[in-house]
Simulated assay, not measured.
Amino acid sequence: MISSTEHVSAFSGATKPNLGILCLSRSFGGLEMNTLKFAGWLRERGWNLTLFVLTNSPLHQGAQHQGIACVSTARHRKYFDVTGARWLAHNLKRLQIPVLILTQNREMDLVSLTKLRLGKSLKLIYQQHMQLGPPKRDVVHSLRFMALDAWLSPLNLLAAEVESKTRFNPDRVYVVPIGINLDRFVSPGVTTVAARQQLQLPAQTPLLGILGRIDAGKGQDFVVSVLHHLRTENKLPVELVIMGEPTKNEGDAYWNALQQQVQELDLAQVVHFRPFSEHAEVFFQAIDVFVLASANETYGMVTIEAMASARPVVATRSGGTTEIIQDEITGLLYPPRDLQACAQCVARYIHDPEQAHQIAQLAQREAQRKYSHHRQCELTEAIIYSIL
């Protein structure tokens, strides 16, 4: 595993090869946004980088807006895309790109076919974003994975999954956390008073906050129930900020049910809905406690942002959150959908602000140490040099 500054510094003066990043997606969710940000960071660090994308996809448009070099294709088949492999191999050879990073596992078949055409002159790196799902130890998956020279997992538990669910060489698996530009969260440039004024929130009331797509999997309905419990059973005058929006043309039913729940529990005056904002640091500065209620979050970017913002975190004990948050040290964890346990965690913070502050400060230092975009770039660069 390459993760230390000792390994990074060993390659700091090396010549940078041309680099490609492949992401043939028409969506623009967390994976695509992270891909675009990562490309931008590497370019800022002096890499001659090209993005391989679908024509007119949001990723293509975003890259063009940022001035990132792109090669696009209008079509892509998930399996046996011989034409796509020919296109990709031709452009890699034309642009003299010896290293290609793919960020979606659905492109594994395409890059393995491409490597058959180019041979060992092409080095392939898979940047994992999602859990593996069912075991992939069969012959077909094993042959595809054999084309990879390195597999980057964002967490140790996901790296362990690779070893247990695939036949991929564990010596080629590296733990490289997906980075975040933490500067604006560590130093938001706005006070709590100003943040609440910007978002038109109560000036003095303790505020819980949840940030993310309005979706059943994110658990906003659960947090509303927690708020009701805190106000009725714990007699705490807390309020809630829900920042996010439903997926267009998909999340209307859940959104409507959430609104109805708020009305039925007589919480309309203390639940504050706010749309997504590019300035998430303002949201974190405004709240007192961040609540993560996702059923199974692979890699909670918003959790890391809350940590970097020095806001105490209450989070579901599931998925990658159990590695990102150290229970009782950098946050408090509760069993999934356990309303009383979640409410108790929040109440602890409200009743003991000194402990909440200590936990939040430790969490901020942990976020800066492990999850900065600088560290992701440095570790990835070291791996690139090591496989050439």
Rank of each mutant, 00 (worst) to 15 (best):
I214Q: 09
Q261K: 15
K218S: 05
L51K: 08
D327F: 06
E245D: 13
T298E: 12
A85H: 04
A293I: 03
Q344S: 11
V175L: 07
D266V: 11
Q261R: 15
A150R: 14
I384K: 10
P202L: 01
I304F: 06
I214D: 02
G13I: 01
P353H: 02
V173W: 07
V226Q: 04
P17R: 08
C377Q: 08
L211Y: 10
A382Q: 06
S112D: 12
L118C: 09
S12Q: 14
M33E: 12
Q376T: 08
L102S: 12
F290M: 10
Y299C: 03
H60T: 06
A347D: 12
M146D: 12
V291L: 10
Y254H: 12
I359V: 15
L42Q: 14
K235C: 06
P154L: 06
P206Q: 04
G217P: 06
V176S: 09
P58L: 11
E233A: 14
S3M: 00
Y371P: 02
I101N: 08
F185M: 07
L292E: 08
R348G: 11
S386F: 01
L240C: 03
L155Q: 13
Q220F: 10
V262K: 05
L116V: 03
R75A: 14
M307V: 05
H7Q: 15
Y126C: 05
T232G: 00
N56W: 01
P177F: 10
P237E: 00
F11D: 07
I359Q: 13
T50W: 03
A216L: 04
Q259S: 05
T15A: 15
N48F: 01
Q340H: 10
Y126P: 04
I210F: 03
V314I: 10
R43V: 08
A89S: 14
L333E: 03
W41T: 07
V99E: 08
S294T: 10
A85P: 05
L42V: 06
Q200M: 07
Y299E: 05
I384R: 09
I210K: 07
Q260T: 13
V71H: 12
L379H: 06
